[in-house]
Amino acid sequence: MGLPLVESALQWNSGILNANRDPKNDDVEFQITRLYSRFHSLDKGENGALSREDFQRIPELAINPLGDRIINAFFPEGEDQVNFRGFMRTLAHFRPVEDNEKSKGHDASEPLNSRNNKLLFAFRLYDLDRDDKISRDELLQVLRMMVGVNISDEQLGSIADRTIQEADTNGDMSISFSEFIKVLEKVDVEQKMSIRFLH
């Protein structure tokens, strides 16, 4: 692996440097190499970074009702380019949780693919203004993206009200991240927010 790849490998799986010649490392190396070539084929401008346009060119993403929100997750506030490092950082949220990672759990730094970080990714899809709260208005906007023109304003409004009531425990009429975690505690986040790699 070249140097930029090693750096991105740390983003991808911070355990990679601990074990020498673990056959699993070869899988990780393979995944990173493949993602690197995918990154390059998406990079139509060939400047080593992806723009929002580059993402929108993927038809399956363009028809995804939340496509724009997902693309946004790759771009830190105020930036309109993402390099391979940043690309891997966001993708790493969707790396499956391996058994040994589950048991360790209490490391100093939590890996990007932990349950909490996966939930944070989903939370930020709703949190349009990045103030760590989902307001009724934000929830309504995201709902509108998902359903398009097919549901009336009143109906969508009552759905939003009900959802916030169910989740809100401190009565501020919005959903904080800890409330979000609580509502979704029964959902198999580890599995549902993971991409299964073949290698």
Binding site: R38, P59, E60, F94, F121, A122, V142, K192, M193
Partner: peptide, 22 residues
């Protein structure tokens, strides 16, 4: 449910990693 976005997120990320068309 608030977890419905999981479906769209995973589909979206999958298509970023690998898609049928491009």
């Amino acid at each position: 449910t608030l977890s419905d976005v999981f479906y769209f997120s995973r589909k979206g990320l999958e298509s970023i990693v690998e898609d049928e068309v491009t």
